[in-house]
Amino acid sequence: MNFKGKDIISIKDFSKKEIDYILEYAKKMVPYAKGEKYTDALKGKILSSLFFEPSTRTRLSFESSMNRLGGRSIGFADPSATSQKKGESLADTIRMADAYSDIIVIRHPQEGAARLAAEFSEAPVLNAGDGAGHHPTQCLLDLFTIFTEKKHIGKNNIVLLGDLKYGRTVHSLAYALALYGAELTFVSPASLKMPKEVVEECNELGIEPIQTSILDKAVKDADVLYVTRIQKERFPDAEEYNKVVGSYKIDNKLLSTTKQKLIIMHPLPRVTEIDPEVDYTNHALYFKQAFNGIPVRMALLSLVSGGLL
């Protein structure tokens, strides 16, 4: 399978076979990601890291991944210090980054920005989040986490919880999980339900997700609980918000009713939705999930640049 020069814009651009290949390749990256082994697979290569929006995990993990592969990264984390402030178009910024580097990673507040960037760049473009659009590397690291913990992705009972309407990560993830045939339950307050189009996409893949607002029952037989943050600004008043947030709090009391091998994932940052006491249980996978961003992004950088292990 050849990924050299391929853009990574949306998880929907990949077949299940291609995703499997990326996940297997990411597995090989783990000892390098941990610093137990060293490689110069991307020696002499430069990554342009263009972050037009704030990011902690995604930006740091991309730059760390490039360093772990022996390459270097240039770029910015604050667009106010760039020519964009002078009114430069994104297309021109991309043309310049294309001339200066071998791979481009971009996060941008507008939907479709990464797709546009790919049109103006010879170098492969990796989408690190385009507004409310896609975040394919997050989706792949989520799949990788389930794959490494559960040994397979399908055949799991997976609960997606929280803001399913506006949450960028859950839409692509629901699609990808349905592609693998996982059993899905969507738990959210009525006002933050999974969009109809996402449910229809799952249906087209032969999956009929259960939709509910009650967590206790849904989580009882779950193998994976994927939690997202509920954003306060989505609610008309504080009382309504507090009611919803309180009902979706994950704590040890709730976990005493679930399967012992249930894993809890979260794209982070979390606020109050997971009690810190859960961090010390075997259920908590969210920090390992954040680490998994490194082997997965290393795998992608290596594959699209052709600098293989």
Partner: peptide, 13 residues
């Protein structure tokens, strides 16, 4: 129809 779509901004597309 999406106001935050990149095609609605000042880009040469």
């Amino acid at each position: 129809s999406n106001p935050t779509c990149v095609s609605n901004s000042r880009e040469p597309v």
